[in-house]
Amino acid sequence: MSLGSPIVKEYFRSDRLPHIWCPGCGHGVIMRGVVMAIDNLKLDKKKVCVVSGIGCSSRASGYMDFNTLHTTHGRALAFATGVKLANPELEVIVVTGDGDCTAIGGNHFIHAARRNIDITTIIFNNKIYGMTGGQYSPATPLHEVGTTAPYGTVDPDFDICKLAVGAGSSYVARSTAYHANQLIKYIQKGIENKGFSVIEAISGCPTYYGRKNKKGDAVDLMNYYKDNALDIKAAEKLPEDKKVGKFLTGEFHHEAKPEYVSEYMKIVEKVQKERSENE
Protein backbone atom coordinates (compact mmCIF):
# COMPACT_ATOMS: atom_id res chain seq x y z
CA MET A 1 0.00 0.00 0.00
CA SER A 2 1.79 3.15 -1.13
CA LEU A 3 2.11 5.74 1.56
CA GLY A 4 1.05 9.35 1.57
CA SER A 5 -1.82 11.70 1.01
CA PRO A 6 -4.10 11.47 -2.03
CA ILE A 7 -1.88 14.03 -3.78
CA VAL A 8 1.22 11.97 -3.03
CA LYS A 9 -0.40 8.75 -4.19
CA GLU A 10 -1.52 10.40 -7.44
CA TYR A 11 1.52 12.48 -8.39
CA PHE A 12 4.57 11.22 -6.52
CA ARG A 13 6.83 8.21 -6.88
CA SER A 14 6.27 7.49 -3.19
CA ASP A 15 8.59 4.49 -3.19
CA ARG A 16 11.37 7.02 -3.69
CA LEU A 17 10.39 8.99 -0.55
CA PRO A 18 11.51 10.21 1.95
CA HIS A 19 13.41 12.65 -0.24
CA ILE A 20 17.03 13.68 0.31
CA TRP A 21 16.43 17.28 1.44
CA CYS A 22 17.48 18.26 4.93
CA PRO A 23 14.95 18.57 7.79
CA GLY A 24 13.06 21.86 7.36
CA CYS A 25 14.33 22.62 3.86
CA GLY A 26 11.67 24.61 2.01
CA HIS A 27 12.16 22.64 -1.22
CA GLY A 28 9.63 19.96 -0.20
CA VAL A 29 6.97 22.61 0.28
CA ILE A 30 7.67 24.11 -3.14
CA MET A 31 7.74 20.68 -4.83
CA ARG A 32 4.34 19.94 -3.31
CA GLY A 33 3.20 23.36 -4.58
CA VAL A 34 4.15 22.41 -8.14
CA VAL A 35 2.09 19.25 -7.89
CA MET A 36 -0.86 21.06 -6.31
CA ALA A 37 -0.88 23.56 -9.18
CA ILE A 38 -0.85 20.68 -11.70
CA ASP A 39 -3.67 18.99 -9.81
CA ASN A 40 -5.74 22.18 -9.62
CA LEU A 41 -5.38 22.57 -13.38
CA LYS A 42 -6.25 18.89 -13.90
CA LEU A 43 -3.38 18.56 -16.38
CA ASP A 44 -2.96 15.23 -18.16
CA LYS A 45 -0.04 13.62 -16.30
CA LYS A 46 1.14 11.97 -19.54
CA LYS A 47 1.67 15.39 -21.08
CA VAL A 48 3.58 16.98 -18.19
CA CYS A 49 7.37 17.10 -18.52
CA VAL A 50 9.46 18.29 -15.58
CA VAL A 51 13.02 19.23 -16.47
CA SER A 52 15.54 20.02 -13.75
CA GLY A 53 19.18 21.00 -13.60
CA ILE A 54 21.67 20.08 -10.89
CA GLY A 55 21.54 20.95 -7.22
CA CYS A 56 19.22 20.41 -4.29
CA SER A 57 16.22 21.83 -6.17
CA SER A 58 16.80 19.63 -9.16
CA ARG A 59 16.38 16.33 -7.32
CA ALA A 60 12.65 17.21 -7.29
CA SER A 61 12.13 15.77 -10.80
CA GLY A 62 12.98 12.27 -9.56
CA TYR A 63 10.18 12.29 -6.99
CA MET A 64 7.37 13.45 -9.27
CA ASP A 65 5.51 10.97 -11.44
CA PHE A 66 5.65 12.71 -14.83
CA ASN A 67 8.01 12.62 -17.83
CA THR A 68 11.02 13.74 -15.84
CA LEU A 69 14.44 14.85 -17.06
CA HIS A 70 17.30 15.57 -14.66
CA THR A 71 19.87 17.33 -16.80
CA THR A 72 23.26 19.01 -16.36
CA HIS A 73 24.06 22.00 -14.15
CA GLY A 74 22.53 25.18 -15.50
CA ARG A 75 21.20 23.64 -18.68
CA ALA A 76 17.66 22.59 -17.78
CA LEU A 77 16.11 25.41 -19.81
CA ALA A 78 18.15 24.51 -22.90
CA PHE A 79 17.07 20.86 -22.64
CA ALA A 80 13.50 21.99 -21.98
CA THR A 81 13.55 24.22 -25.06
CA GLY A 82 14.37 21.16 -27.15
CA VAL A 83 11.57 19.15 -25.56
CA LYS A 84 8.99 21.93 -25.95
CA LEU A 85 9.83 22.79 -29.56
CA ALA A 86 9.91 19.10 -30.49
CA ASN A 87 6.52 18.40 -28.89
CA PRO A 88 4.53 21.56 -28.20
CA GLU A 89 1.73 19.45 -26.69
CA LEU A 90 3.86 18.80 -23.62
CA GLU A 91 3.40 21.08 -20.62
CA VAL A 92 7.04 21.75 -19.84
CA ILE A 93 7.94 22.80 -16.31
CA VAL A 94 11.52 23.56 -15.34
CA VAL A 95 12.61 23.09 -11.74
CA THR A 96 15.86 24.87 -10.99
CA GLY A 97 17.80 26.53 -8.20
CA ASP A 98 19.13 30.04 -7.70
CA GLY A 99 22.65 28.94 -8.60
CA ASP A 100 21.59 26.49 -11.31
CA CYS A 101 19.42 29.10 -13.00
CA THR A 102 21.18 32.42 -12.52
CA ALA A 103 24.83 31.50 -12.23
CA ILE A 104 25.94 28.75 -14.64
CA GLY A 105 22.47 28.77 -16.24
CA GLY A 106 22.20 32.52 -16.64
CA ASN A 107 22.74 32.57 -20.37
CA HIS A 108 20.01 30.00 -21.01
CA PHE A 109 17.70 31.78 -18.56
CA ILE A 110 17.82 35.14 -20.34
CA HIS A 111 17.52 33.60 -23.79
CA ALA A 112 14.57 31.40 -22.89
CA ALA A 113 12.94 34.56 -21.51
CA ARG A 114 13.87 36.55 -24.61
CA ARG A 115 12.16 33.93 -26.78
CA ASN A 116 9.09 33.86 -24.51
CA ILE A 117 8.88 30.11 -25.09
CA ASP A 118 5.97 28.45 -23.27
CA ILE A 119 7.91 26.98 -20.35
CA THR A 120 7.09 27.48 -16.65
CA THR A 121 10.27 27.94 -14.65
CA ILE A 122 10.13 27.52 -10.89
CA ILE A 123 13.28 28.75 -9.18
CA PHE A 124 13.75 27.14 -5.75
CA ASN A 125 15.69 30.05 -4.31
CA ASN A 126 17.46 29.03 -1.07
CA LYS A 127 20.06 31.80 -1.60
CA ILE A 128 22.99 29.38 -1.40
CA TYR A 129 24.54 26.37 -3.09
CA GLY A 130 23.13 23.68 -0.82
CA MET A 131 24.14 20.46 -2.58
CA THR A 132 27.83 21.32 -2.60
CA GLY A 133 27.79 22.41 1.02
CA GLY A 134 26.88 26.06 1.46
CA GLN A 135 28.81 28.25 -0.96
CA TYR A 136 27.28 31.64 -1.73
CA SER A 137 25.27 32.06 -4.92
CA PRO A 138 24.18 34.99 -7.10
CA ALA A 139 21.12 35.15 -4.87
CA THR A 140 22.99 35.32 -1.55
CA PRO A 141 22.27 38.83 -0.21
CA LEU A 142 25.28 41.18 -0.29
CA HIS A 143 27.62 40.87 2.71
CA GLU A 144 26.00 37.63 3.85
CA VAL A 145 28.08 34.52 4.44
CA GLY A 146 28.70 31.29 2.56
CA THR A 147 31.47 28.72 2.88
CA THR A 148 33.28 30.53 0.06
CA ALA A 149 32.54 33.94 1.54
CA PRO A 150 33.54 33.40 5.15
CA TYR A 151 33.93 37.18 5.61
CA GLY A 152 30.70 38.02 3.82
CA THR A 153 30.18 38.42 0.08
CA VAL A 154 31.11 41.46 -1.94
CA ASP A 155 28.96 40.16 -4.79
CA PRO A 156 25.78 42.18 -5.24
CA ASP A 157 22.95 39.69 -5.69
CA PHE A 158 20.51 39.52 -8.57
CA ASP A 159 16.93 40.61 -8.32
CA ILE A 160 15.87 37.49 -10.18
CA CYS A 161 12.39 38.79 -10.98
CA LYS A 162 13.71 42.03 -12.46
CA LEU A 163 16.20 39.97 -14.48
CA ALA A 164 13.36 37.76 -15.71
CA VAL A 165 11.17 40.73 -16.67
CA GLY A 166 14.05 42.58 -18.29
CA ALA A 167 14.94 39.56 -20.44
CA GLY A 168 11.40 39.26 -21.80
CA SER A 169 9.42 36.83 -19.64
CA SER A 170 5.66 37.29 -20.01
CA TYR A 171 4.77 36.22 -16.42
CA VAL A 172 6.95 36.84 -13.38
CA ALA A 173 6.04 36.37 -9.74
CA ARG A 174 7.76 35.76 -6.42
CA SER A 175 6.49 34.03 -3.32
CA THR A 176 7.94 31.95 -0.47
CA ALA A 177 7.67 28.48 1.07
CA TYR A 178 5.76 30.11 3.95
CA HIS A 179 3.14 31.65 1.61
CA ALA A 180 2.56 28.24 0.04
CA ASN A 181 -1.04 28.86 -1.07
CA GLN A 182 -0.02 32.04 -2.87
CA LEU A 183 2.90 30.15 -4.40
CA ILE A 184 0.56 27.45 -5.73
CA LYS A 185 -1.65 30.13 -7.28
CA TYR A 186 1.34 31.76 -9.01
CA ILE A 187 2.62 28.42 -10.33
CA GLN A 188 -0.86 27.76 -11.69
CA LYS A 189 -0.94 31.14 -13.43
CA GLY A 190 2.52 30.51 -14.76
CA ILE A 191 1.46 27.21 -16.31
CA GLU A 192 -1.67 28.81 -17.74
CA ASN A 193 0.38 31.65 -19.22
CA LYS A 194 1.15 30.82 -22.86
CA GLY A 195 4.74 32.10 -22.71
CA PHE A 196 7.83 32.13 -20.51
CA SER A 197 6.75 32.16 -16.89
CA VAL A 198 9.10 32.60 -13.96
CA ILE A 199 8.06 31.90 -10.40
CA GLU A 200 10.78 32.63 -7.86
CA ALA A 201 9.96 30.55 -4.81
CA ILE A 202 12.05 31.62 -1.84
CA SER A 203 12.88 28.45 -0.02
CA GLY A 204 14.60 28.01 3.34
CA CYS A 205 17.99 26.36 3.83
CA PRO A 206 18.44 25.90 7.56
CA THR A 207 21.48 23.67 7.15
CA TYR A 208 23.68 26.19 5.40
CA TYR A 209 22.05 29.56 4.71
CA GLY A 210 20.27 29.70 8.08
CA ARG A 211 23.19 28.32 10.09
CA LYS A 212 26.03 30.20 8.36
CA ASN A 213 24.13 33.51 8.56
CA LYS A 214 22.80 32.95 12.08
CA LYS A 215 19.21 33.23 10.82
CA GLY A 216 18.03 30.29 12.87
CA ASP A 217 16.35 27.03 12.03
CA ALA A 218 13.58 26.07 9.61
CA VAL A 219 10.86 27.67 11.73
CA ASP A 220 12.87 30.89 12.14
CA LEU A 221 13.34 31.11 8.35
CA MET A 222 9.63 30.56 7.78
CA ASN A 223 8.85 33.28 10.32
CA TYR A 224 11.38 35.58 8.68
CA TYR A 225 9.49 35.22 5.38
CA LYS A 226 6.16 35.67 7.14
CA ASP A 227 7.31 38.91 8.81
CA ASN A 228 9.36 40.46 6.00
CA ALA A 229 7.55 39.65 2.77
CA LEU A 230 5.81 42.70 1.37
CA ASP A 231 3.38 42.37 -1.51
CA ILE A 232 4.14 44.85 -4.28
CA LYS A 233 0.58 46.15 -4.29
CA ALA A 234 0.77 46.88 -0.55
CA ALA A 235 4.27 48.30 -0.96
CA GLU A 236 3.02 50.94 -3.41
CA LYS A 237 0.98 52.54 -0.64
CA LEU A 238 3.70 52.37 2.03
CA PRO A 239 6.22 55.13 2.79
CA GLU A 240 9.85 54.23 2.23
CA ASP A 241 10.73 53.79 5.89
CA LYS A 242 8.12 51.04 6.22
CA LYS A 243 9.83 49.07 3.44
CA VAL A 244 13.26 48.93 5.04
CA GLY A 245 14.48 45.34 5.43
CA LYS A 246 11.46 43.95 3.57
CA PHE A 247 11.53 42.00 0.32
CA LEU A 248 8.87 42.20 -2.36
CA THR A 249 6.59 39.34 -3.30
CA GLY A 250 3.64 39.19 -5.68
CA GLU A 251 3.13 39.34 -9.41
CA PHE A 252 5.70 41.62 -11.04
CA HIS A 253 4.70 41.15 -14.66
CA HIS A 254 1.97 39.62 -16.72
CA GLU A 255 1.78 40.43 -20.42
CA ALA A 256 0.30 38.67 -23.44
CA LYS A 257 3.13 38.28 -25.98
CA PRO A 258 3.69 36.11 -29.04
CA GLU A 259 4.90 32.69 -27.89
CA TYR A 260 8.02 31.23 -29.52
CA VAL A 261 6.85 27.77 -30.55
CA SER A 262 3.50 28.90 -31.93
CA GLU A 263 5.21 31.67 -33.91
CA TYR A 264 7.63 29.10 -35.34
CA MET A 265 4.81 26.70 -36.18
CA LYS A 266 3.09 29.51 -38.13
CA ILE A 267 6.20 29.72 -40.29
CA VAL A 268 6.25 25.95 -40.80
CA GLU A 269 2.60 25.99 -41.90
CA LYS A 270 3.10 29.03 -44.18
CA VAL A 271 6.16 27.55 -45.82
CA GLN A 272 4.50 24.20 -46.40
CA LYS A 273 1.36 25.88 -47.80
CA GLU A 274 3.40 28.02 -50.20
CA ARG A 275 5.34 25.01 -51.39
CA SER A 276 2.23 22.91 -52.01
CA GLU A 277 0.61 25.82 -53.85
CA ASN A 278 3.38 26.22 -56.37
CA GLU A 279 3.91 22.47 -56.81
Binding site: S5, P6, V8, G24, G26, V29, R32, Y178, M222
Partner: peptide, 13 residues
Protein backbone atom coordinates in the same frame (compact mmCIF):
# COMPACT_ATOMS: atom_id res chain seq x y z
CA UNK B 1 0.43 21.56 8.49
CA UNK B 2 0.04 19.63 5.22
CA UNK B 3 0.56 22.84 3.25
CA UNK B 4 3.94 23.60 4.81
CA UNK B 5 5.29 20.14 5.59
CA UNK B 6 8.49 19.76 3.53
CA UNK B 7 8.33 15.98 3.78
CA UNK B 8 4.69 15.26 2.88
CA UNK B 9 4.55 13.51 6.25
CA UNK B 10 1.32 15.01 7.63
CA UNK B 11 -1.93 15.37 5.76
CA UNK B 12 -5.70 15.28 5.88
CA UNK B 13 -7.47 12.32 4.38
Amino acid sequence: CELRCPDLAIYLE
